[in-house]
Simulated assay, not measured.
Amino acid sequence: MLSVELVFVVMVGMLLLVIGNVAFSLVAERRNPPIGSFIDCEGVRLHYLERGDKTAPPVVLFHGNGSLMQDLIISGLVDMLARRNRVLCFDRPGFGYSQRPRPRVWTATSQAALFVNALHQLGVRDPVVLGHSWGALVATAIGLQDSYPVRGLVLVSGYYFPTARWDFWMMSGPAVPVLGDIMRYTVAPVVSWAILPALLRKIFAPCSVPGKFKDNFPAALTCRPKQLRAAAEESALLIPEATRLQSHYSSIRCPIHIFHGAEDHLIEPEQARRLYRVLRRSNLHLVNDAGHMATYADGDAIVEAVDSLRVEQPIIISSPHEDARADQVIE
């Protein structure tokens, strides 16, 4: 009898968690409604924000894993770039208000193909593409597409080469079919909300979490079950995607600026150094006293890098060795 009662209590508790998390999601979305427009592409509804003069050179921005477009807006990059460019900032599939259909495996390449089609629909040609963290892999995958030329890439705090990282695998639990679905509608949102302050301190370290981020970032949206699935899937895909793409980096033809915080506690700066050594048309910017959120630490330099790619023929000093381009590295 005790075991039956225990099972009943557990089932009731799980049901209450499901109801509570669904209600939490509805409240979060009511308090943080969509801030942009929608476009349907390949059966996927994408949420995007457009700023600036539509006749100006285009710049496309992609956020990292677990985040959404508000991150790039709060950093100030969107407004600064919109002064001279047509800026399009997307919620990637499963994040914010963009859909992430389950049957598809959302690799960096599949996301790149989706966004290329969306950009064609929006009349965006020859853009500069900026990606932060996981978004840097998506930007790289776009740069690898022969059918869609880009003026240049700006990659910030990216992970490009496989390493032994058990933490990424541990965060992929909510992506497991059935068991993961149970997790993300019961305990995962509660755990995610509880650890969020510590996670934010880690990704911003050694800097403190900016007040403007605390006040304006819609953190509740990141703990919704559907976004937790997207974040878990991308945690599981990160190392395999870096493994798959690494042999193709050298074929990228456009100029590239690589930014990375010199004290990044989430993704080691050596990732940026290795990519710099592989890419012949690249500049490396190591930002002192900055962590994973280099978008907040050195936004002016990132905007300057984007603007440098707006000229007709960007000039990038090339060399296969880091030491030969020491004057191109910000440390």
Rank of each mutant, 00 (worst) to 15 (best):
D91Q: 07
A113T: 03
T109G: 04
L49I: 12
H120S: 11
L130G: 04
P103S: 11
K54A: 10
P33L: 07
P33R: 05
A113H: 11
V124P: 03
G131Y: 01
D126W: 06
G36V: 09
P57C: 01
L130A: 13
A23Q: 13
R100I: 08
Q70I: 09
N117A: 14
H63L: 07
L61T: 09
G52N: 06
P93N: 06
K54I: 12
R86G: 07
V116I: 15
S67M: 07
R30T: 13
S110M: 03
E42G: 09
E29I: 08
H132Q: 08
R84C: 04
H132G: 01
D71V: 07
L130Y: 14
V27T: 01
Q99E: 15
E50K: 10
H132W: 10
M80S: 14
A82T: 06
R83H: 12
I39G: 01
R92D: 00
V27Y: 03
A118P: 00
D40P: 01
V44S: 05
V27C: 01
Q111R: 04
L81K: 02
R31N: 15
V60M: 05
D53P: 08
R51W: 00
V128Q: 05
F95H: 14
K54R: 15
P93V: 04
Y48I: 01
I74K: 00
E29C: 08
R86S: 11
